[in-house]
Write a protein that binds this DNA or RNA. Sequence first.
RNA 1: UGCCUGAUAGUAUAAUGGUAGUACGACGGUUUUUGGUACCGUUUGUCUAGGUUCGAAUCCUGGUCGGGCAACCA
Length: 552
Amino acid sequence: MSEERSLNFIEEIVEEDIHAGKNGGAVLTRFPPEPNGYLHIGHAKSICLNFGLANKYNGKTNLRFDDTNPTKEDTEYVDSIKEDVKWLGFDWAEELYASDYFDQLYAFAVELIKKGLAYVDDSTAEEIAAQKGTPTEPGTPNQYRSRTVEENLQLFADMKAGKYPDGAKVLRAKLDLASPNMHLRDPLMYRIKHAHHHRTGDTWCIYPMYDFAHGQSDAIEHITHSVCTLEFVPHRPLYDWFIERLNLFPSKQYEFARLNMTYTVMSKRKLMQLVDEKHVEGWDDPRMSTISGLRRRGYTAASIREFCERIGVAKRENMIDVGLLEFCIREDLNKTAWRRMAVLDPIKLIITNYPQEKTEIMHGENNPEVEGGDGGRDIPFSRELWIEREDFMEEPPKKFFRLGVGLMVRLKNAYIVKCEDFKKDANGNVTEIYCTYIPESKSGEDTSGIHVKGTIHWVSVPHAKTAEVRLYDRLFQVEDPSNEDGDFKDYLNPNSLHIIPSAYIEPDLANAIPGKGYQFIRKGYFTLDKHSTADKLVFNRTVTLKDGWVKK
RNA sequence: UGCCUGAUAGUAUAAUGGUAGUACGACGGUUUUUGGUACCGUUUGUCUAGGUUCGAAUCCUGGUCGGGCAACCA
């Protein structure tokens, strides 16, 4: 099976490197999240890219937590990240932490001080910002820049020893205050934070900055291709500078465009706000773009991997239509989800010529897409049925292939019925529909010769069970909430969650398996929510079915 | 007004000097015991102006537009 798909630009680079014999042909990538929040679909793109590269080119991928800022990080996030990566179907070679390298990084810093390439600065954050200049004006050196190596060594040791309060001093690289690249204007390497770290505890009160930790961590691990998103492009010269000055393994950084998706937000900061301010139930709320939210919603790992494959990898800004994600999950679930019947907005249908006490057991296959139907289940049928309110119209338009007086439909897996009459209450609402059935039209043994255009789903009234069903709509009302005027939360969709407290479901659904996808025929794909119990079933709608019927 | 990036159908993504293709979407049709699926078809594109070349989406020059960069965040 030869894959015709063309290479993305990173794969091209990797192949060139392999052919050139670089690093002995080794490919070692890493996925480096900061454990300060839950992973989202954007991270999935990075995960699929990094692990995909390793899988494709016989390499390995490390999972490395970029835990250099103790005030924002927590083991809760470490645990969720590991769970999500595993669930997506990837195995990392090693589980590593930037904090594993704190001693080594400290030694690197000392080495740079000794080479005259780093100095301790006593300025405040504001002073440093002011002295950095602006993109059009060079920065200006301060008095601390010319401290002696000995003095810097002593002060840095004192910083480490806890002699100074937070913010009193920082260690900076002595680079180029006039550089057109702001990141090169004597970037900070270490800051003082008397904070408890989730792994190193209170061992340290100075912590390395991203720029002084990431590249060296890559180099220590001998990462060959360090893939990150576009906003790090201006950091690359710094990444290289530290590695060169310290004479480390020459890891190389490559950047791709991060994923943006319509009708959602894609930053941990914003997602955290939604959680903290209770706009959603939590990080795994099924409306969230988090991996855990998508999982709870009913998305499969395979569908997310397929999505990441389809969106491609390039360097231009992009905005992916959430419809593509929906296509991917439909494509997957269509092949695997068991078909069941559930009536979400019920109205009673009475078959007037069907015996009062009679019950028949109908048969329905689990999945018509699978050879043999993938097994099946029994469905009790009786005189009184629940059907969907929208499947009946008092005054049906021309191409309405459902019920209306005089119209015929097939009841899925059962008989063809003809609508004879209906009843309304005092408010004019339809309350009951009366039909007659064609006894010769039974599913599988139809000798009636009648062909109808429409088939509708149903649940037998006396046999019906109930479940809470949660229907989700997009979380935001606009395509790009982050790019609108004002706060992104102003654009939340107030109707993103619709709960049906008691929908009627066919009896077999009481045996629904957690984590499995079900297609409620004509209504969409559903899965059991994590809060579902035997006493109270709760289903989440993963996605609707594609609806080709447009009302006029 | 500095530096870095990027620009191909509505949205993404290929074509690496030689036929602008694919997917999703939209639209139409066939099949169908899901208005689903499957299958078939239609639709729409190289930011702009020059240049190099037998030939340019691709190379060169100028412009236009988008994104990023001045956290003791990553």
